[in-house]
Amino acid sequence: MTTTVEHPHRRRPTRRREGRPWTFYVLAGVFIAYVLALYGPMFCIYLLSFQDIRGGLVFPMKGFSLHWFNDLFTQVRTGDVKGGFQRSIQLALLVTVITVVVSFIAGLAFRRRFRGDSIVFYLMIGSLVAPGLVLGIGVGLLFQYFGVSPHWTTSALGAQLSWTLPFGVLIMFAVMSRFDRSWEEAARDLGATPWQTIWLVIVPILTPGIVAVALFGFTLSYDEFARTLQTSGSLNTLPLEIWSMTLNVTSPSLYALGTVTTIVSFVIIGICLGTIALIQKRRTQRAATH
């Protein structure tokens, strides 16, 4: 290193505000490493799922085909993946709708304190942190006690809701605490009925929060495993299928399943975000064209 090399940072060491502090570069490094570690492994399996029939579980990649996707949906040993998909999506949609509606209504309650609200609040926290399998066992035993056989549309639905609802209510709780009460009063002042106030004022203003609850509800359900394990009855949801596959399938079919579920997740996010974008666009367009 010779002293003639002019380093811009060395030359003006006193002007700290100009350049970025050294911590920026360190933390940027941490951030990049984190993102790589977050996405790297996932991209590996997406890649490996496109191997041909010779493919194995590790690199290097052998060929390129859709063989393992075909294998996934046709082979018996991979289980009822198709059915699992259908059930999981249906269940997730059901959970999403119920979570959105119930959290929204419960959120309305939590805007002001009422007698016993802490009981409800800590019940929710309890339900959120309770070990999933324990809860699943409890629900299973309860159904057994009443002589009802567990099914994914009843016991699994309830078990999942006991997990998605606290999430949803907490989000609504945060969103609604930032909702200006005078909007409601203004609506009332102008003659709106309570229903009109909800539909014309509260719901449209809270749309982003409601979409967030819906996204959470869908993902938490679509991916739920521990609570569903003891409550789904004889028919499996997708995560249960994946679980059994991890125990007995050792082919890239497993990776193909990963690729497919990821695509489904992204399609759902895309639909959600697209809907929001469309609503926003309509709003501004309506404002512009008149």
Binding site: L57, D223, I242, G258, S265, F266
Partner: peptide, 13 residues
Amino acid sequence: WTSNIIRMISWIP
């Protein structure tokens, strides 16, 4: 928004 199980398996390769 993607499956936890799949994300875990992805460490295997």
